[in-house]
């Protein structure tokens, strides 16, 4: 399917083209939403709202080539909105320090560590590593410069490496000398 052509047709009011584009994006949107918000109802809410927003504002998209990035950015914003609304916001520090009852005998799952990252860092890792989106595109999606994305990625990797090391040395995720 020629995505750019379909985008242009959809922008001209062709609903069938728009639906084809949505079907094309559906699985990807689902994977990203489920990686970020996890809860099924929230995934549905995020996807539904993303589709409606895309439907009502597709004409504002200037470059058809950026369609996929644009869709993912809408989805990420929706997911962020849902995360903000969630009742429980457990401070990062508390998660890292809650070690008394956490079983950590087995090698810590890096995926679990990623889930404990602050939201912007977590999304960066999910999009870049787990969804295999180039850093430049991730930066566009997250509305930050490529340089910022690189710096953030570097810091996040350092942080994860440190956590990983701390876990391997004793099972507690906090600063360890």
């Amino acid at each position: 399917m020629d995505i750019q052509q379909k985008v242009q047709q959809a922008q001209s009011g062709d609903h069938q083209s728009f639906l084809l584009l949505m079907k094309h994006m559906e699985a990807r949107l689902y994977r990203i939403a489920s990686a970020i918000v996890k809860n099924k109802d929230d995934i549905i809410d995020a996807m539904q709202e993303t589709i409606i927003k895309a439907y009502e504002s597709l004409t504002t998209l200037r470059e058809a080539a950026f369609f996929e990035t644009w869709m993912i950015r809408i989805l990420i914003n929706e997911c962020n909105g849902i995360l903000l609304k969630r009742k429980r916001v457990i401070p990062f520090a508390e998660i890292r320090s809650s070690s008394t009852s956490s079983p950590t005998y087995e090698a810590i799952d890096v995926r679990q560590l990623v889930d404990q990252l602050e939201e912007d860092k977590r999304q960066l890792i999910i999009l870049h590593y787990f969804q295999d989106i180039p850093l430049k595109q991730v930066a566009d999606i997250m509305n930050i410069s490529e340089g910022t994305a690189k710096t953030r990625l570097h810091r996040t990797r350092k942080l994860l490496a440190r956590w990983l090391e701390d876990n391997e040395e004793g099972g507690r995720i906090y600063e360890n000398k």
Partner: peptide, 21 residues
């Protein structure tokens, strides 16, 4: 730390990415 650890982490993250893809 830890260049080694960061390399290891990079490897693990890529592995997860490949597995998930």
């Amino acid at each position: 730390m830890r260049t080694n650890n960061i390399d290891q982490l990079e490897y693990k993250l890529k592995q997860i990415g490949e597995r998930e893809s």
